[in-house]
Design a protein around this nucleic acid. Structure first.
Lengths: 199, 199
DNA sequence: CCGTCAACTGTACCGCGGGTCCAGTTGGAT
DNA sequence: ATCCAACTGGACCCGCGGTACAGTTGACGG
């Protein structure tokens, strides 16, 4: 169970898949000299789709835990649901600001390379997307119970909007080669939320 | 200048690249039986990057013209800059609703497949992104002159937000295999704008 | 001390797809 | 008649994904 070759490979993928795209990663590169052999790769993963699936699961898991940590911090800092929501968004924005030079989202990356992967990868991606919506939705629902949004707004769509804004801004940032776009967009989303949920 | 093989190939790409990803398109498929030969492909395009660049230019051009048509319609319908903005967003939302079953954005698609393409493609993509911002920014600036937004908001970020919301929602919609996500997100963006720019 | 099994390594091989080269054809403009 | 652009066809190379399989190494249990 220790740090096997499998983990070494997954580390490399996590680093490079977003930067360069899954398609650009060859098995030989992943099983880079001194690390794992080509055969070692196929010992652990049936094919590249299998690798993609595993990397996706890992990425989503890490993201989820990270988000939940932010929620926990917000719960420590305030009892008011709306305030908590605002704190979480603040923290999310900060987290995006501290991200590396070319941040991106594996989920989005996989989305436009459908045919490269099999149905299992797509299904993993679907689950990831639903998870993202639900964890924000929870915050929105409790906030709305304390303070109904005005004008009245579909909370599902509002939850999706955070994901959309982040994923979209990551694309923009990558293409324009600038830093902090996603963080700024989350702050903008935050002002939208603050308007909707103010008394 | 007529409908040469070049155009036939570009038609095919425009259809399939978003659905399946550039990577999944083989030259043999693009130069599909009865259409163009493999040699014909390389006669017109130096390599796949070259094709991607051409397809991107075409896609962006068509998108720009489409958007400008919507702006023109809005200008016919109202003299008030804020109202015009709202109409444009309404039309954009409608347009996304009428889109095909698995709509996507070539620009976003290319973004996560960087290494597949060369610097020229990336540059084309950067230009496309800046164009997108500017055409929305124009609307926002004239609207803000007539009716300053409250609370005061960075118009560049606000312009980016539309692109972000659309591109992000297209990703969400594709992954969740649902229809109309992007259209709903644009409507949500529209309510945000309407709050910011109301008297 | 021996056997066993999981976790590998190395090597040879296949097929596909991108890309090159080049010789030849075809149809319209001059 | 000729010339050129727009192709076609076929031979070829290479890198990459994937398969197959025989062999090694080290931990652990009897």
């Amino acid at each position: 169970m220790s740090a096997t070759a499998r983990d070494l490979i997954l580390d490399r993928v996590q680093e490079d898949a977003v930067l360069r795209g899954f398609g650009a990663l060859s098995v030989d590169e992943l099983a880079d000299p001194g690390k794992v052999s080509r055969s070692g790769f196929f010992y652990h993963f049936h094919d590249k789709s299998d690798l993609a699936r595993a990397a996706l699961v890992r990425f989503v898991q890490a993201g989820h835990e990270g988000f939940m940590a932010l929620v926990a911090r917000a719960e420590d800092l305030s009892d008011d649901p709306v305030e908590r929501l605002m704190i979480v968004l603040q923290l999310v924005s900060k987290r995006l600001e501290d991200a590396g030079p070319k941040p991106g989202c594996l989920v989005a990356a996989a989305c436009y390379q459908d045919r490269l992967f099999d149905a299992a990868v797509r299904e993993e991606n679907r689950k990831a997307m639903l998870l993202r919506r639900h964890r924000v939705l929870d915050l929105l629902i409790t906030a709305a119970r304390a303070q109904p949004p005005s004008p009245d707004t579909d909370l599902d769509d509002l939850a999706d909007m955070l994901t959309a804004v982040i994923d979209g801004a990551l694309v923009i940032g990558r293409i324009r080669q600038e830093h902090g776009t996603a963080a700024r967009q989350v702050r903008l989303y935050r002002t939208f939320i603050s308007i909707l949920f103010r008394e």
